[in-house]
């Protein structure tokens, strides 16, 4: 703030900061509040804390319903991520390679899984796959989760490809590399950070998905969010706080990875600035 600021300007300056601080507090408060409760001794999710205990973590890692949910999440989310990443990256390359009619329409259809209400995805896939006997299966759940993750891969990879200098591919081709070698040796290393970011988004989408799982998965495929959903609905125990804390640590790791990748992607921008 400049020294010549008037009183009103000063008041405005601080009021504005306080408002923004309050919004940031609002954003972060729930996350700060739930972590201490997971170490609480009492069996209720209320403050004040009564004593330190790791029993809820013990329950999370030993109780069969939680271990099964964790195992299922670890099966489903990476499966969905691999499908979404592979198909999404190929399609993004296709979308940036050439112009063809209805390209923007096609693009908006490919991104639509992100905006279609999730209940509609859940109900329609249930009604569609149930007569075929494909519900209660890992494969169906993975496939639908992958469809939900695709838009994120398309968005991040397309954005990264816009910073990719096509002359590098042309140079590789002129030096005798076939398109597949060019892709793996030249293009992919340069867009890898974008692809990984997209993959992270797809992973988070599947890892946090509860509604489709609610409709499509049988008791055998209960995932972590599904287990938490049931827990919050029926009896909210501190084991949920332990699960939440572990998920928060997980999201911090993902967020930091993403920030790291973003920095890396900036450095790898090869397109000539306009």
């Amino acid at each position: 703030m400049p020294v010549y600021a008037t009183l009103i300007e000063r008041i405005w300056f601080y009021a504005f900061r306080v408002l923004c601080g309050a919004v940031l507090l609002f954003l972060i408060l729930p996350i700060l509040v739930i972590i201490p409760l997971s170490f609480n001794e009492g069996s209720l999710l209320v403050y004040p804390l009564t004593g330190f205990s790791l029993q809820w973590y013990r329950e999370f890692f030993l109780a069969p319903e939680w271990t099964m949910a964790l195992k299922n999440s670890i099966i489903v989310a990476p499966g969905a991520t691999v499908i979404a990443m592979t198909l999404g990256t190929l399609a993004s390359i296709g979308l940036t390679r050439a112009d063809f009619p209805f390209k923007s329409t096609l693009m908006s259809i490919l991104i639509s899984p992100m905006v279609v209400p999730i209940v509609i995805v859940g109900v329609s896939s249930y009604l569609f796959f149930a007569p075929l006997g494909w519900t209660n299966s890992y494969l169906t759940l993975i496939a639908v989760h992958a469809a939900l993750g695709v838009p994120f891969v398309i968005i991040t990879v397309s954005a990264t490809l816009q910073g990719y200098n096509k002359n590098l591919s042309r140079a590789a081709a002129s030096l005798g590399a076939d398109p597949i070698t060019t892709f793996f040796k030249v293009t992919l290393p340069l867009i890898a950070s974008g692809v990984t970011s997209g993959g992270l988004f797809a992973f988070a989408t599947s890892f946090d998905e509860v509604v489709v799982t609610l409709f499509l998965a049988g008791p055998e495929q209960t995932t972590l969010p599904r287990q938490m959903f049931g827990g919050i609905r029926e009896n909210i125990s501190p084991a949920i706080a332990a699960a939440a804390t572990i998920l928060i640590v997980f999201s911090v790791v993902m967020l930091l990875t993403l920030e790291y990748l973003r920095g890396k992607a900036e450095k790898l921008r090869t397109s000539v600035p306009e």
Partner: peptide, 25 residues
């Protein structure tokens, strides 16, 4: 500060719902 905005964005919706119940009950 951006991290403070993005952290909730990346945190599971169910974690936040559980947290709001703790805060608001």
């Amino acid at each position: 500060l951006m991290i403070l905005v993005l952290l909730p964005f990346w945190t599971s919706v169910l974690v936040r719902v559980a947290a709001w119940i703790v805060l608001l009950q």
